[in-house]
């Protein structure tokens, strides 16, 4: 009140301050009543990492890429005898797949690098423990998160198609076809010389 500086009207700032708080009071508050009301999480929320064990080939990419080394994988090789084949095939069998969530920083790199979609983000976030050691989730527990993984959201209509789609489309169109981006989806606003 004593120092108005060089502002035009004295006390204007004071009144503005009061106005801001009063306006905020009349608006709905943004607080979520979490334990009573479950929050509506956006798709791709990073809650916990789920493991689809059948997809895992023990390629160890996730464990190697993990920045803080919180994925532990043990496996052994097994011979699978395929009738009719010349010799038995070898197959990796997962013994242990643990993620230590007390170390995990939810960067999602493991999920990105997994070539076989064995790891998924689940929006579940209520897995706190009283003992930090219990945060080490083994493969059963990671697998149990799998039903909570939502289906992936639909592609953006205007977005670029995924590489797989584009390749498949190019193959289907045969050689000499225009570039993938043009063929995958019809774009009304761009003139398409191929058609």
């Amino acid at each position: 009140m004593s120092e108005h500086g060089e502002r035009s009207a004295p006390g204007k700032g004071l009144v503005n301050g009061l106005a801001v708080t009063l306006k905020t009071m009349t608006r709905r508050s943004t607080t979520q009543q979490y334990p009573d009301v479950q929050p509506e999480l956006p798709p791709r929320s990073r809650g916990v990492i789920a493991l689809l064990e059948e997809n895992c080939t023990v390629c160890m990419l996730c464990a190697r890429e993990c920045p803080d080394w919180c994925i532990y994988i043990d496996s052994h090789k097994e011979e699978v005898v395929v009738p009719g084949a010349a010799r038995a095939r070898q197959r990796n069998v997962l013994d242990r797949f643990d993620i230590d969530f007390s170390l995990c920083m939810y960067c999602g790199i493991c999920i990105e690098v997994c070539p076989f979609d064995a790891l998924h983000w689940s929006p579940e976030f209520e897995y706190s423990e009283l003992d930090v050691l219990d945060l080490l989730h083994d493969k059963d527990r990671l697998g149990a998160w799998m039903p909570t993984v939502p289906p992936p959201p639909a592609h953006d209509v205007l977005g670029e198609p995924s590489k797989e789609e584009a390749t498949a489309a190019r193959k289907a169109a045969g050689p000499g076809a225009p570039t993938a981006a043009r063929t995958a989806r019809a774009r009304p606003e761009t003139p398409e010389p191929g058609k």
Binding site: T21, L22, T24, M25, R27, S29, T30, T31, Q33
Partner: peptide, 13 residues
Amino acid sequence: KVMAHMQGRLGPM
């Protein structure tokens, strides 16, 4: 309550 709502919160519930 007033302070909470002026700050966009709910206050004690």
